[in-house]
């Protein structure tokens, strides 16, 4: 259940594209019992890099989690956006209950 009072945020993470990267990034959140509300990932350019988009609920742990994400060897950069970023609103059509 999500609380209405907390703001959501969208993270844009540039990573090296290989099989373990999603586990590194996603695992970092789950190990801190930090729930991910949404995940999107596609290769960028020639496919050597990918971009991971994460939707999270912001709380006081967020700055620490961001610093930990930035430390991952395969992460090139992290950008923080507001929860209304269109990357997930654009996907919303694929997530209606009636499919």
């Amino acid at each position: 259940m999500t609380t209405q009072t907390r703001a959501s945020a969208v993270l844009e993470i540039d990573v090296n594209n290989h099989a373990g990267v999603m586990a590194h990034v996603v695992g970092l959140f789950s190990r801190r019992a930090y729930n991910l509300e949404g995940i999107a990932c596609l290769p960028v350019g020639d496919g050597r890099h990918s971009r991971i988009w994460l939707k999270v609920m912001e709380d006081e742990r967020m700055p620490q989690v961001l610093r930990q994400v930035e430390k991952l060897e395969d992460v090139q950069g992290v950008r923080l956006h507001g929860g209304d970023h269109p990357v997930f609103t654009g996907l919303a059509a694929h997530f209606r209950q009636d499919g």
Partner: peptide, 11 residues
Amino acid sequence: YGLSLPITKHN
């Protein structure tokens, strides 16, 4: 790889 992921600096 999966087992060592949270206990290494990198793998």
